[in-house]
Computed example of a mutant assay.
Amino acid sequence: MSSPQVIFLGGLGRSGTTLLERLLGQLPGVAPLGEVVHLWARGVLAGEPCGCGAPFAECRFWHEVGELAFEGWTPQVARTVLALRQRVDRTRRIPFVDHRDLGRYVHAYRAVYEAAAEVAGADVVIDSSKHASLAFCLMAGGVDVRVVHVVRDPRAVAHSWRRTVERPEDGRPMTRWGALRTSMHWTAQNLALDLFAGAGRITRVRYEDLLADPRTTLTRLAGELDLEPDFGFLRGSTAMLQPRHTVSGNPMRFAVGPVELSRDDAWHDGLPRRHQTLVAGLTWPLMSKYGYRGAAA
């Protein structure tokens, strides 16, 4: 199997990575895979549904990927990768990513990417795992990675993390964070992803720009990522989405058909003023760098 180009979508959760993956995943020759970092626990072990709606074990796409990559999915494979992740793939280890188990860990991801590309007949795969540490592991392990750094106003992100949202997979509430914790993680993930800028293999996109002008933003991204700019699925501010085989991610990975591309700015009224002030105060250096104003609009 030949190695595909891997587009890695990085950033803190609730920043728009799943939406961007769904949009880029409509382009010819591109196979979006969802958050591959969670494939092992949520797909193989828990059997959560694929983005196509079928349970992981019943999805023909993932069945074929498992056969090609590992001669079938087994709990042993999943638990081995999860154990390696605990030793290798940690944000605090980014400066020391050359761990003795790095090769084994990256090999599992490379096997998934290569098998998925072959099954999908694609030249490019998208992994929206988000975590900067995994992106560093992949690059250090020799994977052909292009990182797309997705940024969103941290106050909007904090508001999203406060909301109670049910997981469509099982109806349980998604994880909730307070303003302080969100601010810390927003800063840590974005600072870590900024380190890729020196390597020249990172493209940054703001959630707000993507929603303000989807076609222009996607055209720029397609050019920088060497993707075919076929945007026939865009009709003004509406995207016509086809089902895709994404293993984990935001609930909108299940969306099919017309999806209106509009900004969610509910944080202006929904996030308490004291929390807006706290988040802006804790994140202001990067907020300014990314073009966000400190005062509420």
Rank of each mutant, 00 (worst) to 15 (best):
I7K: 02
R14F: 01
G16I: 00
L23T: 11
G25N: 03
G29R: 14
V36N: 00
V36S: 00
W40D: 01
W40M: 04
R42E: 15
G43D: 03
C52G: 05
P55A: 09
A57S: 15
E58T: 11
E64W: 07
E67P: 05
A69I: 06
F70W: 10
V77N: 05
T80F: 03
V81A: 09
L84A: 06
D89R: 05
D98K: 13
D101K: 07
Y105W: 08
Y109Q: 05
Y109H: 13
R110Y: 06
E114S: 14
E118S: 04
G121M: 09
S133I: 04
L134P: 01
M139T: 12
M139P: 02
D144Q: 14
V145Q: 04
V145I: 11
V145W: 05
R152C: 03
P168D: 14
E169C: 11
M174N: 08
W177R: 09
M184N: 08
G200V: 08
T203N: 13
T203I: 14
L210V: 08
R215W: 10
T217F: 11
L218P: 02
L218T: 04
L218D: 09
T238S: 09
L241Q: 09
Q242N: 11
R244S: 14
V247H: 06
P251W: 00
F254Q: 10
V256W: 00
E260C: 02
G270W: 06
L271Q: 01
R273F: 13
R274Y: 14
T277P: 04
V279D: 04
L282N: 01
T283C: 10
G291Q: 08
A295S: 15
A297I: 15
